[in-house]
């Protein structure tokens, strides 16, 4: 790996959120699980479906539940030829706003019908999934209303729905950016290269493309020493979600010799109880280098006298 390394990487942000529903959404989802659709009535008499806890016009609490549908009218629609991963139907279908019988608002959902039969104003009917869990997708989709409803597969569950899982997944392609890429190419050569601000002449490591205090672009590259001093630290003794290292370990601020900003890194090869402020350390590189600062596995103590506290006091 060298100067031509491609510093672009995929990144996935993925989590299954746990949604608590509260009484109104909970009842709506419980009804869906039981194969019925309910709306809510506002003080003004308007029936909202999908239900919300409040009248959107006034902010006041909604009053009572009203069964709506399962038949509905398509108010508008669009056709999806190639469904996306997150779409509720995985064959060509329509997204539509459908107004359920008895409701004064429309609800967004999927309609499955031949493309040539899709039309605004068409009558459709909710089709429930066989296995229902208390989700808006318990309605599998709507289909053309033939006047006959399919038999509902009964559901054994009786507990009211109070929560559901909401998995989310976002996919990114992240580029390192010119300043970071230059630094990381140095890392791949086992070099630590800072940047100096032309105005205050301070050196930043990791480098900043813009000096945070002066607001001007940094320009000069400065290869840094790989020895430094621990200015302060903490011993991490608990595991946490997303953690890469096995506790206990020492997370320290390491001020490299000649540098101006501390680097947040690990101090290793030493009993964590012996780590101290003023301790002299040097970088230990990984065998396999990667384009992040993790290529420095940790800093380890070196056989030099501690730096007196007075000299590091100004560096937190």
């Amino acid at each position: 790996m060298g100067a031509d390394v491609e510093l672009v990487s995929p990144f996935v942000l993925e989590y299954a959120y746990k949604r608590s529903t509260g009484p109104v959404i909970g009842r709506f989802l419980t009804s869906l699980r039981d194969g019925r659709i309910e709306g809510v009535r506002t003080a003004a008499g308007r029936v909202l479906c999908p239900p919300v806890e409040y009248d959107p016009d006034t902010g006041e609490d909604v009053q009572d539940f009203v069964e709506v549908g399962p038949c509905a009218t398509v108010l508008t629609w669009t056709w999806i030829d190639a469904p996306l991963r997150d779409h509720p139907v995985q064959v060509p279908f329509a997204f539509a706003l459908v107004q359920l019988e008895g409701a004064d608002t429309s609800m967004l959902h999927a309609v499955c019908a031949p493309r040539e039969d899709m039309a605004t104003g068409m009558r459709v009917r909710a089709v429930f999934r066989d296995e229902r869990v208390g989700s808006i997708t318990d309605i599998a989709h709507f289909e053309i209303d033939t006047g006959v409803s399919k038999d509902l597969v009964p559901n054994e569950a009786t507990e009211p729905i109070t929560r559901f899982k909401a998995p989310t997944r976002l996919e990114y392609v992240v580029a390192a950016g010119a300043t970071t890429a230059e630094f990381l190419r140095g890392v791949l050569r086992r070099e630590l290269i800072g940047r100096r601000c032309p105005s205050c002449e301070k050196i930043y490591l990791p480098p900043r493309g813009s000096c945070p205090t002066c607001g001007v672009r940094t320009t000069e590259l400065v290869p840094m020493a790989q020895k430094g001093t621990v200015t302060t630290f903490s011993v991490i003794r608990i595991p946490f979600e997303g953690q890469v290292l096995e506790p206990p370990y020492a997370a320290a601020h390491v001020l490299l010799d000649g540098g101006d900003t501390p680097l947040l890194h690990i101090v290793g090869d030493v009993d964590v109880d012996l780590v101290r402020m003023g301790m002299r350390v040097e970088a230990v590189w990984a065998e396999q280098l990667e384009p992040t600062l993790a290529s420095v596995r940790y800093f380890r103590p070196i056989d030099e006298p501690d730096v007196p506290y007075a000299e590091i006091r100004g560096h937190v």
Binding site: A176, P206, Q243, Y249, L264, H265, L293
Partner: peptide, 9 residues
Amino acid sequence: PFNPPVMAG
């Protein structure tokens, strides 16, 4: 990507 690992929370 390209950022140092989160070491401490």
